[in-house]
């Protein structure tokens, strides 16, 4: 589903170059849940943003369903429609109601009829547990509700892959659970997911594979049992000691 090959992302700053992503090779199979963890500044969010082209990468190849993002002839809009993304800051459209947030891209990108889009939107909102507030504006919703709407908005495009960029980091602690529950349900239903998170409990419970990144590189990779109980690398051990 996703195959990356030696992806390098270099940021040019005033004083020199920063290799935010430094040669990441990763293969995510269809239906797999991959959780990327690591200290802040380790390049995990940048790498995730490269996967749907929000960030241009400097070298390497990213193939989504066979389409190489490094190829200039690939239509990025078509690729992105198949790759849903959930942001740390929700990024709901504040000038549109909850329902309109879910229908806008369905009209514009999928060219669905109003009826189709509404049925899809209402079913998804029900799935993420937003029943009553479909005609409210996002600012009237709690953080947890907003993030669930954001997940539903991404799902409305029927994506083949879902990317989560620290989806619970901006939430009050009591709202983290409701968002993680929705993500767990998605994982159980067989959605291909790449999740950048600090929620180790979620990684342990849901991940098929845990990737530990530091300084732009994959340092450790394995099943949750392996990663949480017997990590090989010193940096991974240190990281786990700090977060657990």
């Amino acid at each position: 589903m996703i195959k990356t090959e030696n992806v390098i992302k270099v940021f040019h700053t005033g004083s020199g170059e920063v290799r935010a992503v430094d040669g990441v090779t990763l293969h995510v199979k269809s239906g797999e849940v991959v959780v990327i963890v690591g200290p802040s500044g380790s390049g995990k969010s940048t790498f995730l943003r490269c996967l749907n082209g929000l960030e241009n990468f400097s070298e390497g190849h990213i193939r989504i369903d066979g389409q190489d993002l490094a190829d200039r002839h690939v239509n990025m809009n078509k690729v992105r429609a198949e790759v849903g993304m959930v942001f740390q800051q929700f990024n709901l459209f504040p000038h549109k109601t909850v329902l309109e947030n879910l229908t806008l891209a369905q009209y514009r990108v999928r060219h669905r009829s109003k009826k189709e889009a509404l049925i899809k939107a209402e079913a998804l909102l029900k799935k993420v547990g937003i029943h009553a507030k479909v005609d409210e504006y996002p600012s009237r919703l709690s953080g947890g509700q907003q993030q669930r709407v954001a997940i539903a908005r991404a799902l409305a495009m029927d994506p083949k892959v879902m990317l989560f960029d620290e989806p619970t980091s901006a939430l009050d602690p009591e709202m983290v659970g409701e968002v993680l529950d929705v993500m767990k349900q998605l994982a159980r239903e067989g959605m291909t997911m790449v999740v950048v998170t600090h929620e180790m409990g979620f990684a342990r419970e849901v991940a098929d594979r845990v990737i530990f990144m530091d300084e732009g590189k994959i340092v450790e990779e394995g099943t949750p049992e392996h990663f949480f109980t017997a990590p090989r690398e010193e940096r991974a051990k240190l990281f786990l000691k700090q977060v657990l």
Binding site: N77, R80, A81, F87, N91, R108, V109, R153
Partner: peptide, 17 residues
């Protein structure tokens, strides 16, 4: 905020939309 345009682009909308 840049996140607004990023959210729209991540849904597959083109730059004009």
């Amino acid at each position: 905020p840049k996140g607004q345009a990023e959210a729209a682009r991540s849904l597959g909308m083109n730059s004009f939309q």
